[in-house]
Amino acid sequence: MTLEKPGFIDPVAEAQACFRLVLRTMSSPGQIVTLANPVAAPPLTPATAAVLLTLVDAEVSLWLDEPLADSWDWLAFHAGVVRATDIGSAAFLCTTRLPPLAEVFAGTDAAPETGATIILQVPSLEGGKKLTLYGPGLETPIVIAPQGLPADFVAQWEQNHRIFPRGIDLLLCAGSSFCALPRSVRIGEG
């Protein structure tokens, strides 16, 4: 185990600052926010690393996909996170490719808050196919164009929104920036 990669330098202040950014983009879906103090922990991008340190610890389970598996030691050391063995049982998923949303736990009608959060590491939050977002948090619909989403993403999200209040919340991370797609948002193409 090598521990040359640090976590937050000032854990209290940096976790708070990162949380407020997550809160801002969760409350205003699609709004792109950027970290002031990036955390360097490849193969995680700075945004992914900071969001994980802010939200996960020994009380929640995390699932990592294969390209990010090198980060287990770093996460175990800095966050003490519980390793989920399969996609369907994880509270948080951190991945470079979106798993089929139907395979991820979406909570129950009585306890929809148990639905998972997916942290998806994408190449860029710009230059991809245009998506229009509508819903709570948005004064008027906004357009985002992240890269790295599956071709049938809009159809999958339609299904994710249809089961509301059950559902999965998504954070898209690229470089030091990220934006959120909470389950309450509706997404149209173009």
Binding site: L23, M26, T54, E59, S184
Partner: peptide, 14 residues
């Protein structure tokens, strides 16, 4: 704080 923050984010999403 982390536990409360996770609850707040789910509350905002629903």
């Amino acid at each position: 704080k982390r536990m409360i923050r996770r609850a707040i984010l789910k509350a905002v999403a629903i």
